[in-house]
Design a protein around this nucleic acid. Structure first.
Length: 115
DNA sequence: CATCTGACTCCTT
DNA sequence: AAAGGAGCCAGAT
């Protein structure tokens, strides 16, 4: 029963972000800008991270696979512990050193390209 | 109702 | 080349 009328709620943006993040395969990482670009939101780079930040990162969303465009774990502090993000990434096979992802270019998962 | 902040990114100096 | 400031949208106070 959707009534054919798009509700158009702010949640739409959030849902979009969550959907893309959940589609990120294990061992892969992406940047906020990539997701924002895929969603079509230009200045959405902040919005993307902010969207999950409001969700506290733990809602079935592998937020640890999302980092800034430099491959640096900027959001590690948002996790329960400043090392949780890195631990999760390493557990999935992603090498993180000095809070930065190694082979970032190879690990980079572009939704527009992969999807 | 108006103001400010925010897990970013790009441009200018 | 590096550092700093401005810009984007949406939610919260």
């Amino acid at each position: 029963m959707n009534v054919g009328q798009p509700e158009k709620k702010h949640n739409d943006f959030f849902q979009n972000v969550y959907d893309v993040v959940r589609l990120i395969p294990a061992g892969r990482v992406t940047s906020y800008g990539a997701i924002a670009a895929y969603l079509g939101s230009k200045g959405g780079a902040r919005m993307v991270g902010w969207a999950m930040g409001s969700s506290y990162t733990e809602h079935g969303i592998p937020a640890h696979r999302v980092v800034n465009r430099e491959g640096v774990l900027t959001a590690k502090m948002q996790f329960r512990t400043p090392t949780t993000m890195q631990e999760l990434l390493e557990k999935e096979g992603v090498i993180v050193k000095n809070d930065k992802i190694q082979n970032w270019k190879e690990r980079f998962w572009d939704p527009e390209k992969e999807l």
